[in-house]
Simulated scan of single mutants.
Amino acid sequence: MKLLLVEDDDSIAAYVAAGMTQSGHDLDRAADGLTGMELAFTRDYDALVVDRMLPRLDGLSLVRALRAAGRDVPILFLTSVGGVDDRVEGLEAGGDDYLLKPFAFSELLARLNALTRRGPARREDTMLGAGDLTMNLIARSVVRSGQAIDLQPREFRLLEYLLRNKGRLVTRTMLLERVWDFHFDPRTNVVETHISRLRAKVDKPFDREMIRTVRGSGYILEG
């Protein structure tokens, strides 16, 4: 792998660099966000590892800028900022994974291997659709039957995940993990509440409902 590490902590950077070298991977390092952004825009990488708290340009702004420009390289946040809201914010900014400090190098490498196996998003995947519903991932827009639908960020992520799995059963646990990054059951009705809000925008104004509940199992978005 050819990797870019954007990290201002010299000791962590040296630790990661040593591990990557021993594992046979190439690593570039940027000590601030602006340098990291310049490298990410001018060189090709298999994946980026980005700290959130960076001088000159923070990690969230860096990732948002890359995604806004259509750069689809896999990005893993490596940070000590680890609250649930922080992780959600990082994923919604365009990160693909989130690893907290302190960390084991073996886990970092395993996560990067998983991200790069998936590969960058294919060009055609910037557009998702089912029936008369389309989603533009670059413009962050949703249209059904020619009518624009205004979604909140979480609703957008929820619909995106349903579209990527159209015709397949999506369980509540799957949604908690992939849309909210919860790897435990928060014992709330957060999924049901957001499904209801999404239906109010995507289904109710139209003749045919697309989001179907499978009682006791989850949801299916039908084309």
Results as ranks from 00 to 15, higher is better:
Lys2Gln: 15
Leu3Tyr: 03
Val6Gly: 03
Glu7Val: 04
Asp8Arg: 01
Asp10Leu: 15
Ile12Tyr: 08
Tyr15Leu: 15
Tyr15Asn: 13
Ala18His: 13
Ala18Pro: 12
Gly19Leu: 12
Gly19Cys: 10
Met20Glu: 09
Met20Gln: 11
Thr21Val: 15
Ser23His: 13
His25Val: 09
Asp26Arg: 14
Ala30Arg: 11
Leu34Gly: 07
Thr35Trp: 06
Thr35Asn: 11
Glu38Gln: 01
Leu39Thr: 05
Phe41Pro: 08
Arg43Ala: 08
Asp44Ile: 11
Asp46Ser: 11
Val50Phe: 05
Leu62Ile: 02
Ala69Asn: 10
Gly70Gln: 14
Leu76Thr: 00
Val81Thr: 13
Val84Trp: 13
Asp85Tyr: 09
Asp85Trp: 13
Arg87Leu: 07
Val88Pro: 02
Glu89Arg: 01
Gly90Pro: 00
Gly95Asp: 00
Leu99Ser: 00
Leu100Val: 02
Ala104Glu: 07
Phe105Gln: 10
Phe105Val: 13
Leu108Gln: 07
Leu108Ile: 04
Ala110Phe: 10
Ala110Cys: 04
Arg111Tyr: 04
Asn113Pro: 03
Thr116Val: 06
Arg117Val: 07
Arg117Ala: 12
Gly119Lys: 08
Pro120Met: 14
Ala121Pro: 11
Arg122Asp: 12
Arg122Cys: 12
Asp125Pro: 11
Thr126Asn: 15
Met127Leu: 14
Leu128Met: 09
Gly131Gln: 04
Gly131Glu: 04
Gly131Tyr: 04
Leu133Cys: 10
Asn136Arg: 12
Gly146Phe: 08
Gln147Ala: 15
Gln152Leu: 13
Leu158Val: 07
Leu158Ala: 08
Leu159Lys: 01
Leu159Pro: 01
Leu162Cys: 02
Asn165Ile: 01
Asn165Leu: 00
Arg172Phe: 13
Arg178Thr: 11
Val179Glu: 05
Trp180Phe: 14
Trp180Arg: 03
Phe184Glu: 03
Pro186Tyr: 09
Arg187Trp: 13
Asn189Ser: 02
Thr193Asn: 11
His194Cys: 06
Arg197Ala: 12
Arg199Glu: 00
Lys201Arg: 05
Lys204Trp: 14
Lys204Val: 14
Met210Val: 01
Arg215Asp: 04
Gly216Ser: 06
Gly218Ile: 01
Ile220Arg: 05
Glu222Ile: 07
Gly223Thr: 12
